[in-house]
Amino acid sequence: MRRTLLQSVFLYTCVFAVAIFTTGPLLWLVTMSVSAPTDLTEVPLRWIPSEFDFSRYGALLDIDGGSGERFLSALRNSILTAGGATAIALFLAIPAAYSFSRRNASMVLLFAFLATIMMPPITYILPLYSTFSSLGMLNKTITLVIVYTAMLLPFATWLMKANIDVLPLEVEQAAFMEGASTAYTIRTVVLPLALPAIAATAMLSFLVAWDEFFYALIFTNDLSAKTLPVAIADFSAGRVTDYGVIASVGVLATLPPAILAICFQKFIVSGLVAGSVKG
C-alpha cells in the first residue's frame, strides 16, 4: 500500500519523536560529561558546550587520582562480580537446564526457580546480611558473587532450557547409542551445539549482574568491594560540585552494556523475547 503525503509526514514525525525521546537523555548525559563546568551552571542552559573538555575522563581513568581510584576499583569489582557470577551461574545452569529439557524434571520446579528471583530482595536481605556478617564475609567480592549466582541462576537455567529444547534429540541419542555417558554427551555434543545460546545467556546474565544495586549497597562499604552502581550512587549523593563528573561516570558505566546490546542486538533481543514470552 502506498502512503499519502500526509501519512508520510505523520510517520516521520513519530519516528523523529521516538528517536529524540530515546536518545535525548543519553545525548545530554554525554554532552554534560564533556562540557566545561561553567557551561553546566549557566541559566538557561548552554546546550552546545563552549569547548570540549575530556579532562574528567582522564581523571576517572587515572588510578592515582581520588575519583580515578574510586571509579577504577569499582569497575574492577563490577567486572569480577558480574563475570564471576555469570560463569558460576552458567556452570550450574547448564546441567539443570539439561535436566529440565531432557530428563523430565518438573516444570513446577522450574517455575519455583523463577519465583525466587521474582520475590523482592528485601525478603531475603536481612537473614543474608546477618549470616554474612557473622561469617565475616561482608564487604567481599566473593559474597556478591555468591548472591549474584543465585540471582542469575533461575533466569539462565530457563533460557538454556528453552534453547536445549530445540536442539535435535536424535544427535544426543546417537551419542548414547555410541556408549557416551550423559556427562560426556553434554560436554562433547550438547555444549558445542548450544554455544550461541550459551553466549546469549552469558551476555544477558552479565548485564543483569552489572546492573544490580540493592545487594551491593547492603553488602559492601568500601573500595575493596563496592561495585559501579554503588560507586555511582555515592558520586551522585556526595557533594560533587561538577555535575560533569557524575555524567562521565554514568557514560563509562553505560558503555559496556550499550556496546554489548548494540553489537549483539539479535542475540539479546531473542533472549529477552524468549525470556518474556515462553512459559
Binding site: E170, M177, P192
Partner: peptide, 15 residues
C-alpha cells in the same frame, strides 16, 4: 552391543 543409523543421520555437527 548395538549400533543405530538414524533417519536424520544424527551426525555430530561439530565434529
Amino acid at each position: 552391543d548395538i549400533a543405530m543409523v538414524f533417519q536424520s543421520y544424527a551426525l555430530f555437527p561439530n565434529m
